[in-house]
Design a protein around this nucleic acid. Structure first.
Lengths: 243, 243
DNA sequence: AAGTGGTCTAGACCACCAT
DNA sequence: TGGTGGTCTAGACCACTTT
């Protein structure tokens, strides 16, 4: 499995350890939430000192790949969707009163063919069957985002029969279809509402909207889902600190 | 200066070292670009081991506060504006041919009074004099962003007489007015063009735009500049990776 | 009691930079 | 040649968790 740690290699040992851990996770030898060997065990296995393994672990913890619990062990983390742009909708939920629960309403779900862009992203032909999910995401019954989601039928056979109203999709991908999302790419642009999206989001025609595209990948960087989302511009505010 | 490192303190030593370094930078005892003492020197001064100082330095390098050069020393970094949203304009500069130089054209510069929002951000009264700069930023002569910038007159006396066409402002703040920018806050929203911005940006009325607000701070977290920018939506695309 | 991660130390060797 | 950061090791002590 992977390349063994090599003292002759010009690359520092702790970086080789990082590469080894990355490889084991992406090959699903170690999976999300699983406890991995302790510093001492891995150091013995790889033939380096415990301090070197600790340095590699620390870097991976900082990057959000692993997390550690004192007295328990070191574990594989999942992707952190609090980094997603979705987090920045409804920034002005001033009062935060109850009833402000997130939800999702399914408009349509069907086995069909992908759009050219979806086929390109999923790296499949335009004739390959996909499941298309159209849904509206809400906060406290206010429509915030409308989105089209495409997943390959081959990987998600039977998904189209599930009741996914108000459900999170990624736990279903992982638990019922053995396809965990390891990481994702998101792109954001500014746009204005078409008549269809204006109606669904209950805003004016040509009102400002945020357009999102997400590519979500599983093992071996295989893209397994793409989303095209349109969010209400008046409900979105992004913040960044520059240091 | 600051609290000395204390073995009795419940806080780990390397964190106390981090706090000490933060304090010395924000009090301008160590300034941007300056070489700070080596691991060994600082370890001796603070009464901890070199490894502890190394750990503190590493964390600060990761956070972009310091940078290190093998054989030379450790230096205080400035804020990294490649993190700014401005970086994501003109993403589709496909060819990257020459003539694609960034520039800025001054529309107006005057000593005046702040808007209510600017006064609030700069933490001054509405009667306090400020310098207002209106400019257009371009890429290859194409207008990309139009912005209003407010800086307190008290700190920047004489700025209004400078020729700042095509100049970067922050080096001028730092070198000519002893007011370096240490960090900044940026907010982004989607909007549509007003008739004035449409004309300046050479786009249609109500076309999508990106609205930015930046608060830039100097020593002791004092806000010294605020910017209100409107950018062409068709020239903007933001990307994020979720892991 | 045994195993885990978290902190801290001391020291070695190397590559790089200035002089 | 001496000082700097970069890597790597070995070991100590502590706090926390599980058995």
């Amino acid at each position: 499995m992977a390349k063994p740690i090599n003292i002759q290699n010009e690359k520092p040992l702790y970086m080789q350890v990082i590469d080894t851990i990355h490889a084991r996770i992406s090959q699903n030898f170690w999976h999300q939430g699983m406890m991995i060997p302790s510093e001492n065990e891995l150091a013995k296995e790889l033939g380096v000192s415990a301090g070197t393994v600790k340095k590699a672990f620390s870097a991976l913890v900082h990057d959000g790949i692993l997390f550690r619990r004192q007295g328990k062990g070191t574990f594989v983390a999942g992707p952190d969707f609090s980094k997603s742009f979705f987090r920045f909708f409804r920034y002005n939920a001033a009062t935060g009163e109850p009833g402000e629960l997130p939800g999702s309403k399914i408009l349509n779900m069907a086995v069909t063919q992908p759009t050219p862009r979806a086929a390109e992203i999923l790296n499949i032909s335009k004739k390959t069957k996909v499941i298309k999910i159209e849904r509206i995401r809400t906060l406290g019954n206010v429509p915030i985002v409308v989105e089209d989601i495409y997943i390959p039928y081959k990987l998600f056979k039977g998904f189209e029969a599930l009741n996914i109203e108000d459900e999170l999709l990624y736990p279903i991908y992982s638990e019922q279809f053995s396809t965990p999302i390891i990481w994702a790419d998101e792109y954001m642009q500014s746009d204005t509402a078409t008549s269809k999206t204006a109606e669904l989001l209950e805003i004016e025609l040509h009102a400002p909207v945020i357009k999102l595209e997400r590519i979500a990948c599983s093992y071996s960087d295989t893209p397994v889902e793409c989303r095209f989302s349109i969010g209400r511009g008046d409900q979105f505010r992004y913040h960044i600190v520059i240091r």
